[in-house]
Design a protein around this nucleic acid. Structure first.
Lengths: 137, 137
DNA sequence: CACAAACCCTATAGATTTAGTAGATTAATA
DNA sequence: TATTAATCTACTAAATCTATAGGGTTTGTG
């Protein structure tokens, strides 16, 4: 299941991407428009900023804005920052790999092979979808 | 993330599928062979039985066995029983649909469209993979 | 009958998620 | 300079989920 954190994060990003110009948008504006709890959204935007997706401006007239063009932000990046591994099991993850305790031989594991297939497909989608693609509808 | 319940369930099922003949296999046997907590596995096999995947036999010489041929058990069925929805968001789910609280228009939602793509692809894999496919390696 | 196995119910520690609360800090503006 | 609007930080808390353990019951077989 996708966490609300990720869901809200994506919604906020598309909201920012749809903006004309690049002037900062206040959290409260996004929060109201997208029906997201303000304080929760605050922490989400913060992690997006800390991971180089967003820039921020403090004080009056401040807010958040995209650091790159929406076409230059692949969903793989967004998903990994917000949701973590794209793979459903750590032993299949490229960026968050972890060995299973119970599994003596990864290459003989039925779960491993199945989940590798799923990850490859999902990864392909996220790679080929940019933030800009989510705005066009 | 895939729950251990699902992971263990799949491992147990492939273990049963690999069995010669159809004689029941005791929980303890699977538990030891696959390094799965016995009591946890017990509850997993129980739900698989209640959902028509496994049969069971009580008493001495008892245990669990597949009710159908492994080739006749698609992974969609297994995943839905153990993990629940295949989709990452309820508003995209075919079998477990739920409307989002925050989203006024599903068709205008960026998350919705992205996750529909992911679901379609994942579903395709699970549909085309049977339990028997997981045993061949 | 005795035993071995599935079956069923309950509890629980720990983790994670989704917030809410309170306040500090920064920057623009009147 | 005082005010105000905004981000930033840290703590707390409720709710839910996960993985497992314990103990007792039932049922079938040898």
């Amino acid at each position: 299941m996708l966490s609300k954190k990720t869901k809200y994060g994506i919604k906020a990003l598309t909201f920012l991407a749809k903006q004309e110009g690049k002037s900062p948008v206040a959290i409260a504006t996004i929060s109201k428009s997208e029906n997201i709890s303000l304080k929760f959204l605050e922490s989400i935007l913060l992690t997006l900023r800390k991971n180089g997706i967003l820039g921020s401006k403090k004080g009056k007239g401040g807010g958040y804005y995209l650091l790159k063009e929406a076409t230059e932000i692949p969903m793989t990046t967004v998903m990994r920052i917000l949701e973590g591994p794209i793979s459903m099991v750590p032993c299949v993850s490229l960026n968050f790999y972890e060995k299973c305790d119970d599994c003596p031989d990864e290459n003989a594991c039925s779960v491993h092979s199945l989940m590798t297939k799923v990850r490859d497909n999902t990864l392909e989608i996220f790679r080929n979808t940019s933030l800009a693609d989510l705005c066009n509808r």
